[in-house]
């Protein structure tokens, strides 16, 4: 099977200038229940007003620490969990309006971190890969599955009949990628998809992802905690902290200048890789606060070296701080914010 036969890509609708995915004001609070009556005791503010766009053909990297809401954002965007508020617009069609959940899932597929938990242990891998295509009523699901397994580097003659436990982690993740592609999606969300793999295997899978992106004209959302990997694979990077977006920028711009103090700390926490020049001071002290009760105002102000009184009172908005679409949510970069150091720190 050739690439065109393997792939029934959905037609482009709005042209190249229209973002493939637009997320506006996305919000998700998870209730914590307790006590005998199971009443809601508190809310985890997992995602709180997240907005971003994914352009056609680009790879958007999402970085942040555990609990920052990056995985929840991805799951909301794919429709795996219901949002409390916000719009999800896929190539011009809003979910719940002109786009059904079933249509959204045909357009967006996801690959998860745990390659074993993602696969049904009782299905052979060819059945797993063919399953979604069959449900969606695509033609020749089994032929498609075999073609895709071959494409991700698993010879169908040797692997198609195997069960997930008979494969290594790297091989299973290839199966998960093949399964996502079997739906011929336009956008693939990779949620820490290479994080559990050994470094040598991770590089193989990253090469595969680059090839598939070029071959099938895919758009990726790539979630990872590994900044080196994000830098390698992404066009733009979105940084999250405690359920909010703190900075968005093209890769080159953010590596040249981290505008938000949190982004700067995250980057300086990377190991130096230089035995003659090791890290001497931790960029931040303590752990990230609990998203059940996030700090008032700017959520980073409790750990921020530049925090002023204002920061504890008023939450900064994402605003443009550079020509190339560099956005940051920090009073320091808003000359009118009233922060004593506003505009004085690069």
């Amino acid at each position: 099977m050739s690439a065109t036969e393997l792939y029934d890509r959905l037609p482009d609708r709005g042209g190249p200038a229209q973002p493939l995915l637009t997320v506006r004001g996305l919000k998700k609070y998870f209730p914590i229940r307790g006590g005998i009556l199971g009443r809601t005791r508190a809310m985890v503010q997992a995602v709180d007003g997240v907005s971003f766009e994914v352009r056609k053909g680009e790879t958007l990297g999402i970085v942040g620490e555990s609990g920052c809401g990056k995985s929840t954002t991805a799951r909301l965007a794919v429709g795996l969990i219901d949002r409390d508020e916000g719009d999800i617009i896929f190539d011009g069609d809003a979910l719940g309006d002109t786009l059904s959940l079933r249509e959204l899932r045909r357009g967006i597929q996801m690959v998860f971190q745990d390659s074993y938990a993602s696969l049904n242990p009782r299905l052979t891998i060819e059945e797993s890969v063919a399953f979604g295509a069959r449900v969606q009523g695509l033609s020749d699901p089994m032929g498609r599955a075999h073609g895709l397994l071959a494409r991700v580097g698993l010879d169908p003659a040797r692997f198609a009949q195997r069960y997930p436990h008979e494969l290594s982690g790297g091989q299973r993740q290839r199966v998960n990628i093949a399964r996502a592609l079997a739906m011929s999606p336009r956008l693939v969300v990779l949620d820490e998809a290479v994080s559990a793999l050994d470094k040598s295997v991770e590089a193989q899978v990253l090469n595969l992802l680059s090839d598939l992106r070029a071959e099938f004209g895919l758009t990726y959302i790539f979630i990872s905690h590994d900044l080196n990997v994000v830098r390698y694979i992404s066009d733009r990077v979105l940084v999250m902290y405690l359920g909010e977006v703190v900075e968005v920028a093209p890769v080159a711009a953010i590596w040249a200048r981290q505008a938000h103090p949190y982004t700067r700390s995250l980057f300086s926490a990377m190991p130096s890789m230089d035995p003659d020049n090791r890290t001497e001071e931790p960029p931040l002290t303590g752990d990230p606060p609990n998203p059940i009760d996030p700090p008032e105002g700017c959520r980073f102000h409790t750990r921020c070296p530049f925090a002023a009184t204002l920061c504890g009172r008023k939450a900064p908005q994402l605003r443009k701080i550079g020509a190339d679409g560099h956005l940051a949510a920090c009073h320091l970069h808003d000359p009118t914010s009233g922060h004593p150091k506003a505009g004085k720190i690069a």
Binding site: E65, L266, A269, P282, P283, L284, D287, P288
Partner: peptide, 8 residues
């Protein structure tokens, strides 16, 4: 651990 905690 998270990156900022790992380095600590």
């Amino acid at each position: 651990l998270d990156a900022t905690v790992q380095i600590q």
